[in-house]
Lab assay of single mutants.
Amino acid sequence: MQRVNMIMAESPGLITICLLGYLLSAECTVFLDHENANKILNRPKRYNSGKLEEFVQGNLERECMEEKCSFEEAREVFENTERTTEFWKQYVDGDQCESNPCLNGGSCKDDINSYECWCPFGFEGKNCELDVTCNIKNGRCEQFCKNSADNKVVCSCTEGYRLAENQKSCEPAVPFPCGRVSVSQTSKLTRAETVFPDVDYVNSTEAETILDNITQSTQSFNDFTRVVGGEDAKPGQFPWQVVLNGKVDAFCGGSIVNEKWIVTAAHCVETGVKITVVAGEHNIEETEHTEQKRNVIRIIPHHNYNAAINKYNHDIALLELDEPLVLNSYVTPICIADKEYTNIFLKFGSGYVSGWGRVFHKGRSALVLQYLRVPLVDRATCLRSTKFTIYNNMFCAGFHEGGRDSCQGDSGGPHVTEVEGTSFLTGIISWGEECAMKGKYGIYTKVSRYVNWIKEKTKLT
């Protein structure tokens, strides 16, 4: 034993070699072989497995989906700052455009905790909710729209109204504003409101030439003092309507412009014939205590009207009353817009006519005020429907199939267009061939041609 100890002390290297040989010859039971080890760690190889990531292109799944990435790591994937920024906006807080917040056709661009709407022409605001041009839906104005110097929408209202708090709607500024039905039992019968379409306001006024200088022999019209197929109006439903009495009662109609003036057809009036105007009328054979009678003290036909040349060209006249009318729910003026808007309103496509005229061709006159909704007829169809001249200051309205029309005794009465609950004068009943005849239409004086003249002559002093 002493000898062994001496050998170990003198030859430590020998001992180490012996131990190493023993270990190498022993069977290893701690580690699995290569094949079995792979069965336990069965993990798919990654895209760049075996390579240094710093030297390969980034992978979106590896960089940002398996674990949260930084902007720089995302930049490695896209290799483009702009594309990385677009991805980053949604990656950080989701897609803010998912709810489609942009209105009126706006395009949404996502941002971090926010979004941006790219608005089409005519709109602005956070969600493109603000109209900035009158060309689109009248700028959301209830009545009139004008573009300011910086191309912003400025709404306005006709006389007797003021802008509401929203700067879009119009509200009454006087007790009985024009064009409004205020009798409670008839307010439910107000005709369907007309909503502004998209309009090209630059070209809204037709490029028409008034044929002022045409000389033409007097034409022989049949029954051209021209509501057939209409309905009984309720008291106060058309408070701007008046009836004219002269040699015979209810020979023509008219509309209240203001307390002192009536507008009617020029062919209705004769110099030297006494005319009485009755406002607030409903049943011409009954006294309903809503009527107001006034005498006409002055007749002003349009300066281009000449019955000797043509009885229905420039067929418009103004009547001055001896005493002002007292405005109330049964006696209310009709609204008159400017030339541009009167023309736009007419193009809405349908209007209402009213009167006490004959209820059928050569038949009896109506006792109760009649009204009828009539569609506008395109000019080409209008011209083809008659052998008589249709001037540019006239328009056609009615039904091709016949059966409904204005008729004798309705002449001078109103053709009105309702705009968001307020009625505007767009025409004056003038003439036609018979009444409600198939293929024939009622012919009306186009008020847009005469609004400046009306307003100039009827100013209240």
Rank of each mutant, 00 (worst) to 15 (best):
V416Q: 06
A265C: 03
L318V: 07
F238M: 10
S70W: 04
C435K: 04
V153M: 12
R358N: 09
I136D: 09
S354K: 07
E79M: 13
L369D: 03
N100K: 09
T190L: 07
G403Q: 13
G398V: 03
T422Y: 04
T215S: 11
F395P: 01
D405Q: 15
I7W: 13
A307E: 07
C108P: 01
Q90D: 12
K152N: 13
K362W: 04
N343A: 07
C102D: 00
D315T: 02
I316G: 01
S430K: 02
R294M: 02
V359H: 12
N310W: 04
V296W: 01
P333Y: 01
A164D: 06
T458W: 01
T422S: 04
R62C: 04
H267N: 04
C155R: 01
L244C: 02
N343G: 10
L325A: 00
T85M: 08
V4R: 14
C435H: 04
L20S: 02
K137H: 14
E281C: 10
E129H: 05
Y312D: 02
V202Y: 12
T332G: 04
N295P: 03
P239Y: 01
Y391K: 15
N203S: 09
P197T: 12
N222L: 11
N138P: 05
L460S: 07
H289S: 14
E340R: 12
L244Y: 03
K387S: 07
L24T: 06
V202K: 13
H289Y: 05
C382E: 01
T422F: 03
K45N: 11
N393E: 07
A308W: 05
F176D: 02
P177D: 00
I262P: 00
I443M: 10
E66G: 07
E76K: 13
L103H: 11
E434W: 10
P375S: 14
E124Y: 04
E401H: 12
K293Q: 10
G357R: 15
I443L: 12
H289A: 05
I428K: 01
F224V: 13
L372E: 11
C117L: 00
K68V: 12
E288L: 06
E320I: 00
I15W: 08
E10H: 12
C170N: 01
A436D: 12
P197H: 12
E420W: 09
E116Q: 05
N36Y: 04
Y352I: 14
S411I: 12
N36R: 11
W88P: 15
A279C: 03
Q241V: 10
T194Y: 13
Q143K: 01
S430H: 04
V353R: 09
I309F: 11
V353M: 04
T158D: 03
H361R: 13
D405G: 12
P44I: 11
F388L: 13
I284S: 08
G351T: 02
T276W: 07
K260H: 06
K68G: 10
A307H: 10
D322T: 03
T276M: 07
N166M: 02
E79W: 11
E281Y: 07
D198E: 10
P414Y: 06
V243C: 05
N203H: 10
K311F: 05
V183I: 13
L32Y: 13
P301F: 11
C28H: 03
C335V: 00
T271L: 14
P235W: 07
T186V: 13
L211E: 06
T290R: 10
G351C: 03
E10Q: 09
T194Q: 13
E288G: 06
